[in-house]
């Protein structure tokens, strides 16, 4: 088990119903993709937020990462939709 702080933005935050939380992750959650799959088992709100898993973007310790990237050493993992600033 490892403990990680998760932060959500935009409609990911709205659908999950909270902006952040701290979770214990099972040892077999190795990559961002594993994390998304794990979160979807936690309830309907997570399933709704992460339904279109391939559009979800992720950042580890405030840097962009891909779904295949490992989460080892992550203090903070953010999940959010494609960005629409500017």
């Amino acid at each position: 088990m490892s403990t990680v702080n998760l932060i959500y933005f935009s409609w990911v935050r709205e659908r999950i119903g909270k902006g952040e939380e701290t979770l214990e992750l099972p040892a077999d959650v190795v990559t961002i993709g594993d994390l998304l799959a794990h979160l979807k088992t936690l309830g309907a709100e997570y399933e709704s937020a992460l339904e279109h898993q391939n559009v979800i973007r992720a950042a580890i310790n405030q840097e962009h990462v891909d779904h295949g990237d490992p989460i080892a050493g992550a203090r903070e993992i953010a999940l959010f939709p494609p960005m629409t600033g500017g």
Binding site: F9, H64, P81, M83, T84, G85, G86
Partner: peptide, 14 residues
Amino acid sequence: IMDFLKTAAPFWKK
């Protein structure tokens, strides 16, 4: 700068 800011800077408009 604008092209990358729009696609990589973490902002969302509602």
